[in-house]
Amino acid sequence: MTALVATMRHARYVVSENPVTGLSFGLFLLIVLAALFGPFLVPHDPLASNTTMALQPPSAQFWFGTDQLGRDIFSRVVVATRLDFGIAVASVVLVFCMGGLAGVAAGFFGGWTDRIVGRIADTIMAFPLFVLAMGIVAALGNTVQNIVIATAIVNFPLYARVARAEANVRREAGFVEAARLSGNGEWRILVFQILPNVIPILVVQMSLTMGYAILNAAGLSFIGLGVRPPTPEWGIMVAEGAAFIVSGEWWIAFFPGLALMIAVFCFNLLGDGLRDIVDPRRRT
């Protein structure tokens, strides 16, 4: 309890010291709200086309303008939040489980487990990550689910390494030895002694990689993988608007791109802020 109070106090200190982190917390709440309630709040149906109103610039009626089919871009941008945010969260949670467990096992058991996990991580790192993600989606099939899997796989080495390092330093720690001496099995120690200590670091890692996960997913859908039109999604909306940039209809690509950028920016700042809270030593 006192630890929680201390953490809260430190969190308040970090936010007050660094208003940018506070801003990013606010933005994060906005994104979560848009993801949860967006479809109920938007002024227009994101899928309803109306060719008489096609390619309208931003106005009071259409805040972000309309696209070539007359769909309201503001509504589409807001509704897309759920899908983009969902893909990022799902992939980060997936890699948190895969990479976290593999890394903890590698660091705790050492030996062959360590070597195999290390080799897998090295092999993934031997690829340019976005290119590998492309290859995985192409091979597994062109679906949103596979975008999640591909994004998780390319992030695997990062999580596995962090978890491995954290588990490794704790392998011989006093409290682990104490647990061992009081007759706990290795697996029990792994789950009850090591994991709880590694999870906070991995949570920070999650928020640090959220931004990259969103960028990766949007990049894949920008080149036509995963999400299919007319589903509103930021990457594919930018791709649809790209053709109109050269003729001056900037708003079609601009607003979804801006939403993407703000989301990534928010997650990056949030990750830095969260790292300061969880690990005060690494403050820069």
């Binding site: 931004g211 960028l215 949007a218 990049g219 920008f222 990457g235 930018v238 791709a239 790209a242 690509a253 791109g257 801006l258 993407l260 950028m261 703000i262 990534v264 920016f265 990056n268």
Partner: peptide, 8 residues
């Protein structure tokens, strides 16, 4: 810079 989607 790290937040900019390159295609954007």
């Amino acid at each position: 810079g790290v937040s900019l989607p390159v295609f954007f």
